[in-house]
Amino acid sequence: MYGRKRLVIAAVVSAAVVTGPSAQAVVDPSPVLFGDPAVLLRAPGPVGVAHRGASGAAPENTLAAFRTAARMGADMFEIDVQETKDHKIVLLHDSTLARTTNVEEVFPGRKPWRVSDFTLAEVKRLDAGSWFGDRFSKEGVPTLAEVMREMRPTGLGMLVELKDPARYPGVEKRVAAVLRGDKYWTAPDSRERRLVVQSFDWASVRRFHKVMPDVPTALIGKPKASTLAGHARYADQINPNHRELTAAYVRKVHAADMDVLTWTVNDAAGMRRVLGLGVDGVITDRPDVFRKVVRSGAAAA
């Protein structure tokens, strides 16, 4: 069981990581380069998870967003996975391509532009960055395997959300197959948290746990306190909306030997409040703000 005692992040420290007041302006989408980086094992404490990458500064679920998260001092980055027509695992929050790509221009006659109606080759023709800003026009929709390969040198952990799994029967096995393809992410190490898989669909989390029982899992939402012991048989985290949290509930989750990561908190005051409740980490669009709050040591009473 991946419990609270193992809430330790292996993070890469390098001059390439930019934090502090200027961090929010850093949106350079170029690769993060690390030369002989030192590895810092942080003691158990609050973890900063970049929501869809640093999505306040770069287009969500793109390599640019994940690289920016590394520069802003995130500990982990969160991603959403969907499945193409030819059963390839790609990163998109929505079940359709319309909001974050130019699919309506490239494929005007294929409304409603569901991800599952397009092959990977077709998805790769799309621009997934211009909607956020012209400088990101070369950003495409990455596959899970591409993100795993490209983000390995940063040392960040990865929080994978199975999005709409009921739409893709068997997706748990296909995601597991991709994860198994890169031993870096799945190698067990009690000192590190490199990978967690989560979903709003708790039955999907249970199915994934059966396929890869050694990979930490999380339930998005807020199960009743009376059910936590049962959920702890297959889940390692409870990840609720910050508006639903109380210190008493966090204590009950901890008593069940599970962690609490809360979402999505983007302002310093809100971060201090949830840290004061005892959460183990915060999922945020602004990992730079979270890093400042943690360094200040300030938590709201």
Rank of each mutant, 00 (worst) to 15 (best):
R233H: 13
A176S: 12
D201H: 02
G140L: 04
R149W: 07
A145W: 02
K210W: 01
H254A: 05
K222A: 06
R180D: 06
R251Y: 04
F132S: 02
L162I: 11
D134A: 15
I220M: 14
T262Q: 07
F132Y: 14
M148I: 04
P216I: 03
L162N: 04
V260T: 10
A232D: 03
T186S: 14
L159I: 09
K124Y: 02
K124H: 07
Q237T: 11
P216Y: 12
A203K: 09
M148R: 03
S190Q: 13
L195M: 07
A145E: 15
K138E: 14
K252L: 12
T143H: 06
R207I: 10
V211I: 15
R149K: 14
T246V: 01
G157I: 06
L144N: 14
P169H: 03
P223E: 00
L228C: 11
D257S: 09
R167M: 11
T186F: 09
R233L: 12
P223R: 03
G221A: 00
M151T: 06
W131S: 07
A247G: 09
P216G: 09
D127C: 06
R194F: 09
D189S: 02
A218F: 03
T262K: 02
K173E: 15
K183E: 15
F136L: 09
L228A: 08
F200C: 08
G181V: 05
E139F: 01
M258E: 05
R194W: 07
V260E: 05
R125E: 15
D127G: 10
E161N: 08
K173Y: 01
K183Y: 00
G140N: 03
S130I: 09
V253H: 08
Y168R: 08
R251M: 07
E244Y: 15
A247T: 02
W263H: 13
A268I: 03
L126I: 12
Y168W: 11
N266K: 02
Y234M: 10
W202L: 09
V171E: 10
E150D: 14
K138F: 13
A203I: 02
L159A: 04
M258C: 05
V160F: 04
R193K: 14
V175W: 11
N241G: 08
L144C: 08
Q237W: 12
V160C: 10
L126R: 10
A232K: 14
A248H: 00
S199F: 10
A268V: 07
S137D: 10
A229Q: 15
N266T: 08
F200R: 03
V147S: 00
M258L: 06
L179N: 00
N241F: 06
V197R: 07
T143M: 08
D236V: 04
A128G: 12
G221Y: 04
N239L: 11
R193V: 14
G230S: 13
G133V: 08
R191F: 09
F136Y: 15
M258F: 00
Y249T: 00
G157L: 02
F132E: 01
K173S: 14
T264M: 02
V147M: 05
